[in-house]
Design a protein around this nucleic acid. Sequence first.
DNA 1: GCATGGCATCGGAAATCGTGATGGCGCCGA
DNA 2: TCGGCGCCATCACGATTTCCGATGCCATGC
Lengths: 301, 301
Amino acid sequence: MELYHLKTFVTVAEEGHLTRAAERLFTSQPAISAHIKALEEELGVTLFERTPKGMQLSPAGAQLLAQAQRTLAAAGDFKLAARAMQDELMGSVRIGLNTDARFLRLVELQALLGARYPRLEVAFLGGSTGVNVPNLRVGKLDAAFISGEGDDPLLSSQVLCEEELVIAAPAGLRDQLTACDVPALAALPWVYTSPDCAHYGVMRTVFEAHCCAPEKVVLANQEDALRGMVEAGVGLGIVRRDDMREAVAAGRVFIVPRQLPTVSLRFAWLTKRANDPVLRAVIEAVSTVWQLAPEAAREAG
Amino acid sequence: MELYHLKTFVTVAEEGHLTRAAERLFTSQPAISAHIKALEEELGVTLFERTPKGMQLSPAGAQLLAQAQRTLAAAGDFKLAARAMQDELMGSVRIGLNTDARFLRLVELQALLGARYPRLEVAFLGGSTGVNVPNLRVGKLDAAFISGEGDDPLLSSQVLCEEELVIAAPAGLRDQLTACDVPALAALPWVYTSPDCAHYGVMRTVFEAHCCAPEKVVLANQEDALRGMVEAGVGLGIVRRDDMREAVAAGRVFIVPRQLPTVSLRFAWLTKRANDPVLRAVIEAVSTVWQLAPEAAREAG
DNA sequence: GCATGGCATCGGAAATCGTGATGGCGCCGA
DNA sequence: TCGGCGCCATCACGATTTCCGATGCCATGC
């Protein structure tokens, strides 16, 4: 028993004639005659009384008609639902964060994704560059914001902006900071990040160029934790300039006048998953939010 | 899109492998691969993600799975319902009556039909032999009780019993009925029936044999009406003997001691509909109630 | 009595479906 | 690192099903 049997059954019941039903179904009368016959034989029930005027539903056929229509309706719903979602992007995407939401423009990204793809489930998972990269590799994340060069061979990424880094110092240390040369800075207490963070690389670069190492006091893996400690007077730290504006204006912190190399904020994903339409949509949305041309996406070095 | 596509879809979703699904469906792996492919192409939706471990439902496929199962369930219900009623007698039958229910053993007949065929709708429609026969011919009745010879060429019938008829007279006429010869009877007032009633034929036969005609007073088409009029003293009438026992015992009526020919009570139907299973079942039930051998059914003369 | 309209049946053509073999692709263990 | 393995996609061919046109039968209506 197949759907076309049921379709024929219902049509014949509605039309009352094999001939008319055949016209409505764009086929021949013998064909639907065979459909009805096959259905009746399979079910062991005579569905119609054959009269000289046409096909009249038997009592059993009348009872079964409703269920046949229900079945066809269910099939129609199925098809309709499928058609409705044929172009719609579905699924879920897990995006790793490496810094605060405002800087990453998450609200705008979420708004854009929500408007374009209402059935897409987006999860923003807090973290850091250091944890995001391995999570990408093992599939715990689908995409992530990272800072640095993006030189992982398995990852692709696009640059969103250059982060301007500065050395921030607590106001309480201003007296000890008469000279701003590197060795003097190294002698002061530092709040440092984990080695897998791009800021750590910047710090290391600066000090290694002068063959000295900073005085490490405490490790803060999370950016806001590091910033809080700097503001609280624990020590110096490397932060994004715009992240410190408020504290600088309030006088709790000052910026050491020394130029640092910038690091790239990137949006990264597993190269081999680049063809996933969900991923492509997210990348496209990120590009839009950061006002990049779509071709700005580039393979990782 | 056919049911087997949906069946394959659901099975693959449940098994997670084309190969296993193929085993469960007793077919080959390329076959169901083609099913899935055809379904996906028709719907424009990828239902599965192909992984090295097998087939994993895509988000769209997961959403559609439930509706596919609903459709299959509806189809299964349809089949089940059909199978359940494949041997069960259904439909409706209209049976014409020509006399009182007790004499026709309607309670027993109804009980038997109800027990054997719970889905059969039975309608007993009051009437008389005279109206039942044309109603049978035009299809207003499916079967009927009639009295007489059943010589209609379109009808078949079986004899249920012989009705013993008597001439009943009101007690008030006893004085005038000293002689019981036919001419004397003809001179008395008669309650007569319509010409299409078998009793009328009996009356006519009796009087025509003696070349005289009864004094007609009033026509009573319905048996109980005739009986009531006889009891009320309106005139003589021809009735079934056992129908008058009560009135005779009560002294309201007496029986004229004259032998009358009997008429046959028959159960009749349209010959060309004799193969209708519903009709056959009803005929069989009537035979049972009247304790006839099934082969007692005979063609009309 | 003939024309009409309805369904059932039949034989051949056409499309469909199923099968077995084959190939590509990841994964895993040696 | 390299076969072996499991899995799915594809192909060509054979078998089955399906469809069509023609025909026949039957009941009805004019």
